[in-house]
Structure formats: C-alpha cells, structure tokens
C-alpha cells in the first residue's frame, strides 16, 4: 500500500519552477531515499509535501487522502512528521520540553508513553532530560529532533539531511536508528546528500536532478549504477 504518492508535482517559487513534474511513491513500511546535488530541489520536494509552498500542479496523496491544497498545520497533524533540515530544535527549552512540544496535540498519557519510547530509542536523551537543548552536541540535537518528531506517533517520518554536519561515527548511529524505525513499522522518507549511506539503508531510491526524477531503482541497484557512482558516490 502506498503511504505517500506524488503525482507529476510542479512547484513554483514565484515565477521560477523548482520542480518540473516529479512523481514519487513511498510504500508503507519501507525506507525510501531521495538523493541529489545541491539545488536539485530535494528540500523543495519535502516542503511541497508539507504544503509550504503548495504544489502548483499535480497531486500529493498521503494515506489515500489528497493533501495537495491542505494547510501545513493540518498536514502535520495527520500522521506525518518531519525532521527539518538543520535540526531546528528549540534551543531555549529543555530536552523534555522539546519532546513535549512534539506531542503538542496528544493527550498527556500519550505523551508519557511516547516519551518513554523515545528515551528507549535514545538513552542519551534521558540522561540530558533537564538540560537546555541548545547546549547539547550536534549529534544529540539530531537525536532530539528525531525524538521530537516521533512524539506525535507518526505513521511516516520525513528526514531532511539528518547527517548534516555530524561526525562519521554519529552519522552511523543516526542511520542505525533510522533502520530501527522501519523495523517498528514507521515509513521513512529520507533526503540525503550523503548518498552512499542513504542508499545502503534504503529499500528504494530516487535521484533528483534539477527538479526532475532522473533515476529510480532499488537502493542496491542504484549503488551499483555507474552513473550514480560517478555523480554522487565519488566514482
């Protein structure tokens, strides 16, 4: 069953078209990676799913529901969570308060349950529960950003460049967690510049180039594809 479908989506910033008819499908329970160079439109594609900006043509369908023209707030409350690029945690709030913000629309008992769950996934966050989030290391902040997204108990999670600016060892840890999320039944849509690791983990992958899908295959095949190797994997 498809979780998220983009059908021939065009997105404009003013008069400039950033996505020229992109079609992507993410099935339930899989990890799909989207790779592409700087300026290919990866973040635009994600933002279009979130409805800011909205697609100017084409359709975005989440769990069978057309969300193309829904307001952002409504989309984000319907089983979809995003870990924005650059983490964007609330640096002035404590770790625990950050997590509670993630479960803003849930009841207290649900928040309590999700919080325990997040602490199981990231024992590190439990240790830092009452620390101000801005004082943590980049890796810990990324964990918090993922944890915060998980607080709303989403069916699908979108990660925008989770490896950005992190040490290799930390990246490895983050990707392990992402794999673990799939095992829990959460669908993952991963946008990465770190193509090697992203494709390694993914069930399927898309290659985005200047606003168009250039390639689409399983993660393994893409890793072995000579064009992909040349362009994204350093030959």
């Amino acid at each position: 069953m498809s979780m998220l479908v983009l059908e021939d989506v065009h997105t404009h910033y003013g008069k400039i078209e950033a996505l020229h008819g992109v079609s992507v499908e993410v099935n339930q329970g899989e990890i799909v990676s989207l790779i592409g160079a700087n300026g290919a439109g990866k973040t635009t594609l994600l933002m279009t799913v979130c409805g800011m900006p909205q697609a100017s043509a084409g359709r975005v369908i989440l769990e069978g529901r057309d969300i193309t023209n829904e307001p952002t707030a409504q989309i984000m409350r319907s089983g979809l969570a995003i870990v924005p690029e650059g983490r964007r945690i609330f640096s002035g709030l404590t770790v625990e308060e950050n997590l509670h913000m993630g479960g803003f629309f849930n009841t207290k008992s649900e928040i309590r349950k999700s919080q325990t769950h997040v602490y199981e996934l990231f024992p590190r966050l439990k240790e830092r529960e009452h620390q101000r989030a801005g004082t943590m290391s980049g890796g810990e902040q990324q964990m918090l950003a993922i944890g915060r997204a998980l607080m709303s108990r989403p069916n699908m999670i979108i990660l925008d460049e989770p490896s950005l600016g992190l040490a290799p060892l930390v990246i490895k840890q983050i990707f392990e967690i992402i794999g673990h999320l799939r095992d829990e039944g959460i669908t993952v849509f991963l946008v990465e510049q770190n193509a090697h690791q992203a494709l390694h983990l993914a069930d399927r992958g898309y290659v985005l180039e200047t606003g168009k899908i250039r390639l689409h295959d399983t993660g393994k095949n893409l890793l072995e594809n000579p064009d992909v190797q040349n362009a994204y994997l350093g030959g």
Partner: peptide, 11 residues
Amino acid sequence: EDEIAARSLGL
C-alpha cells in the same frame, strides 16, 4: 524560538 520547527509540529 523557531517558526519552522513549530510549524513542522503542526502548530
């Protein structure tokens, strides 16, 4: 604190 983050949480 962070408008984009707040919006990403459905606010």
